[in-house]
Design a protein around this nucleic acid. Sequence first.
DNA 1: GTCTATACGAAGATAGAC
DNA 2: GTCTATCTTCGTATAGAC
Lengths: 182, 182
Amino acid sequence: MIQSAALLMRERGVEATSFSEVIERSGAPRGSIYHHFPGGKAQLIEESTRYAGDFIAAGLVAALESSDPIASVRAFVASWRTILRESHYGAGCPVVAATLEGDRTPGARAAAGVAFARWEELLADGLAQRGAAPDRARSLATLTIAAIEGAVIVARAQRSSAPLERVAGELELVVADAIALR
Amino acid sequence: MIQSAALLMRERGVEATSFSEVIERSGAPRGSIYHHFPGGKAQLIEESTRYAGDFIAAGLVAALESSDPIASVRAFVASWRTILRESHYGAGCPVVAATLEGDRTPGARAAAGVAFARWEELLADGLAQRGAAPDRARSLATLTIAAIEGAVIVARAQRSSAPLERVAGELELVVADAIALR
DNA sequence: GTCTATACGAAGATAGAC
DNA sequence: GTCTATCTTCGTATAGAC
């Protein structure tokens, strides 16, 4: 159910993700929703946000296995490209969705903040260890994550991966520069 | 009503923006909703997205009045900082909201795509005219818009303007580099 | 144009049996 | 744990009077 909710969140947003659809997609039994999630929808969304945050963090760790930081950025971008393409630009990031409609589910928004911070930390450490100027590693990481998340949104609106490709190209230049400056 | 809807969209998202609240905030008469918007909510959201897109484009034009492209980026960032601060990190970008919940309102998503393209065009032209390497102006513009939109989201999730500041700093470096390389 | 009243559906949540 | 049934609320949309 948590996974299904995350998938629905990234497609439709939090508010448009209903229990009915989560049940339908996950095949979970109707009657046990409030047994597993006594906190109701807010709890489900919060846990799904955490799940998605961890999932994407794992992808980031995998991308950072390369010793080349540019290859890492490229691998991270590639995973988003795949999501966009396979969903016909209908799916984005569940953590972003949790942020945007977070006033009604403060727990989910907080979980989104934690997820972003975690990704940033992973990426900043990775960049610093792989030759990026240490004092710039953190802001580079923030830029990378923000730019990719933003690019995914623009790509969905325009139903084209071109914005993501342009952003990816620029990010590669920036990372290369930051390493050369060291 | 269009303006009120845009304000609600940027705070709560499309799905959570109800006619009742639009009426309440705008002071418009209940009975005339479907007189002015025969297409119902979808039409209202679509027109609000266009309105917001034009509004932000106008801000971008104003920011581009400076002859210094870095000052332009700084001015654009400043307007987002103000929105975040004044809303206590409760408000983001209505055009982003229209994109994320766009499956149910394809017209609004399309309007969002047009808005992003327009901003990108304005910024790319401005950067090219102000000394940015011509062949990079467009991808620089995409990066700038995507990164700022992404930073606004991260800032909301973390209830802090720090991510926006870090992204702004990096963007200034990138733009400065692109001009120096010319 | 704007009003009131209302139809209609969907969603979250609860109760109590099994 | 899971089921069925139901409650309540809320949202969009429509109808028809003024």
